[in-house]
């Protein structure tokens, strides 16, 4: 082939590749809109302000974890420990407060439990070169154990009034939603505009090349898990305030699956190197709305769970479609 036809040929395959990704993405988008349109027509109070706020609150409390998970997925890792970390943090903060502890200190304690677990995960994976899946699965069990121990497997309730400042509303918008939106914007800028953010994608795309290029891959990997931990801690504060209690079962089994699915719908890949915050948030809104519709339509929780399982299977297949 001469240069010209070679370029043309390269150009065509390029368009095809890009096209495929765009095609998959637009199909996902259109499908999401159709599903939501059909469901919302069936539901009476879907667009009532109360329901919208309700959905937003749900989105924001799980949303913090999907933000952290997006970072971890981008560097090619995974963090399964988040639900356990939240419960351990909540139970520690909760039991401290009902023992008469200061609410500000309690909030800091909740946050630091998140950071400590992020630190453990980060050290084990970045320094110890252990497999992220196994490490975070272990810290999940560890943190669940801590939560059960601290709460003695009972519900911790009667938190001090002051603590509920984290569940206050500015106008009609809960504080948690505002903090979540701020966090999402900051993180989005961080990932797309800063050097360190670019490094996240490079490490996820090809960690060997990143290392040779002079990027401190250990530091980047470590940082991703720390971010995940900080966001888990932050989420835990708002979740505890919203629920008004802390238990060792306060975060449902499906949260991990839901957040992973949300990120992948939004463009992240389990193979690393891909993902963006806005996509993950939209994905999460989609997942939450589906659950919300099931709820309002009176579909049983277990049937809803089964359907969600199928949706997640479909989503993982989307990941395959996008990358091959």
């Amino acid at each position: 082939m001469n240069t010209q036809s070679k370029q043309l040929f390269g150009g065509i395959t390029n368009i095809l590749r890009e096209d495929r990704k765009i095609r998959v993405n637009s199909i996902v988008g259109v499908l999401a809109v159709i599903i939501l349109a059909v469901l919302s027509c069936q539901v009476k109070n879907f667009f009532s302000i109360q329901n919208v706020i309700n959905v937003l609150e749900q989105v924001s409390s799980v949303g913090f974890f999907s933000l952290g998970l997006t970072c971890v997925l981008i560097i090619g890792g995974i963090d399964l420990s988040v639900p356990g970390v939240i419960m351990a943090a909540s139970c520690l903060g909760g039991s401290y407060m009902i023992g008469g502890g200061n609410w500000i200190l309690a909030a800091l304690m909740i946050l630091s439990v998140g950071i400590i677990f992020g630190f453990i995960n980060g050290i084990a994976i970045a320094k110890g070169k252990m497999i992220p899946f196994i490490v975070t699965l272990s810290t999940l069990v560890l943190s669940q154990g801590i939560a059960a121990y601290l709460s003695a497997s009972a519900t911790i309730y009667g938190l001090p009034e002051d603590f509920f400042i984290f569940n206050a509303k500015i106008g009609i918008v809960p504080v948690g939603v505002i903090v979540f939106v701020l966090a999402a914007i900051l993180l989005s800028i961080f990932l797309s505009r800063t050097k360190t953010g670019r490094c996240f994608f490079m490490v996820g795309e090809n960690i060997e090349t990143a290392r040779i290029s002079g990027i401190n891959t250990t530091k980047i990997t470590f940082l991703a898990y720390i971010i995940s931990g900080v966001l888990a801690g932050t989420g835990a504060i708002f979740l505890t305030a919203r629920l008004g209690t802390a238990t060792a079962t306060m975060v449902g089994d499906t949260v991990t699956n839901d957040t992973i699915a949300a990120c992948i719908i939004g463009g992240a890949s389990l193979n690393g190197g891909q993902g963006n915050i806005i996509g993950s948030v939209l994905g999460l809104i989609f997942i939450t709305l589906i659950a919300n519709c099931f709820n309002l339509l009176g579909i049983s929780y277990y049937v809803g769970m089964a359907i969600k399982g199928l949706i997640i299977m479909a989503v993982i297949y989307i990941d395959v479609l996008r990358s091959h």
Binding site: I189, R193, T194, K195, R198, C199, F201, M202, E205, N206, E208, T209, A210, R211, I212, S213, G214, I215, G273
Partner: peptide
């Protein structure tokens, strides 16, 4: 294996070892 970021565009590959030079003055954005 360890030379390229295959699914990134050419420009991100070219600047990948010298990113500090492309930071903006004020906000340190790329």
């Amino acid at each position: 294996f360890d030379g390229l970021f295959l699914s990134m565009p050419v420009w991100k590959n070219v600047t990948s070892a010298n990113m500090n030079a492309y930071k903006s003055k004020k906000l340190k954005f790329m």
